[in-house]
């Protein structure tokens, strides 16, 4: 469903993503892990067509993101890092807008919006300006706009960042419910989240994949059985010597 081939991205002389390859099939929930600045968001931006790779390529449901971006983007729902939203809109007008551009037929729009509003619990703020919403509610609206067209592929950049514990739980459940027939890639800094919802974990550091496997296998690598220990070990071992 998603095939990534030797993906590279340089900003000037700096290599943010350095030869990342993997593919993901429907039913998989891929947790994207790595320290700050590892290249997670940059990789997601290339999958969604927001950034053009310096090298390599991405195929989404058979469509090459570089050659046929519109076909690729049509299959995707995307929550960018920080959940940017138009501040002067309300969740309702924003969802209507996204549903329309994303091709949800006019007759189904209302039902779809009602459904996602219930899924992410934003009914109470539906007509409040987005710039007056709290951080967690903004994130929920961001999530709602990513799933409003029921996409086959979901790319979520830190979907639970800023959510309260109850909401985190709800969002994880939502992801699990949706995972059966979708491809989901999510990035997170919460390791328990990977354990709870992901069927697969990829760790990247300095733009390179340093681990690709199940969360269970990852855990077994640690003598104490703690994910944060393995994570630290893997990501610091790969660090190049400074100076």
């Amino acid at each position: 469903m998603i095939e990534i081939q030797d993906l590279q991205k340089s900003f000037g002389d700096f290599r943010a993503v350095d030869g990342v390859s993997f593919s993901v099939e429907p039913g998989e929930v891929l947790g994207f892990l790595g320290p700050n600045g590892a290249g997670k968001s940059t990789t997601m931006r290339m999958i969604t067509g927001f950034l053009t790779p310096t090298g390599g390529g991405v195929k989404v449901a058979g469509a090459d993101v570089g050659a046929d971006p519109i076909a690729a983007k049509r299959r995707i729902g995307y929550l960018p890092e920080g959940a940017p939203l138009y501040p002067d809109m309300t969740p309702r007008t924003l969802l209507e807008f996204i549903a329309e551009v994303r091709g949800v037929p006019a007759s189904e729009r209302r039902a779809r919006i009602e459904k996602v509003v219930a899924q992410v619990h934003i009914a109470g703020v539906l007509d409040q300006r987005i710039d007056t919403l709290s951080k967690g509610f903004k994130r929920r609206v961001g999530l709602a706009q990513a799933i409003v067209h029921d996409p086959e592929i979901l790319i979520l950049d830190e979907p639970t960042d800023g959510l309260d514990p109850n909401q985190k739980h709800e969002v994880r459940q939502l992801i699990e419910e949706m995972s059966q027939d979708k491809v989901i890639i999510l990035s997170t800094h919460i390791l328990e989240e990977v354990e709870a919802v992901c069927s697969r974990a990829i760790i990247i550091t300095h733009g390179k994949v340093v681990y690709d496997g199940t969360p269970q296998e990852l855990k077994e690598r640690s003598p104490s059985g703690r994910l944060d220990e393995v994570f630290r070990e893997i990501t610091t071992a790969a660090a190049p010597a400074l100076g």
Binding site: R45, T48, G49, F50, P69, I70, A71, K73, R74, I76, Y78, P80, G82, P84, L85, Y86, P87, I98, V101, R102, G103, Q145
Partner: peptide
């Protein structure tokens, strides 16, 4: 500045 360009340019439009 607000980052909404990422929302806009990842929509299925040219």
């Amino acid at each position: 500045k607000t980052g909404t360009i990422e929302l806009l340019l990842t929509l299925p439009i040219s």
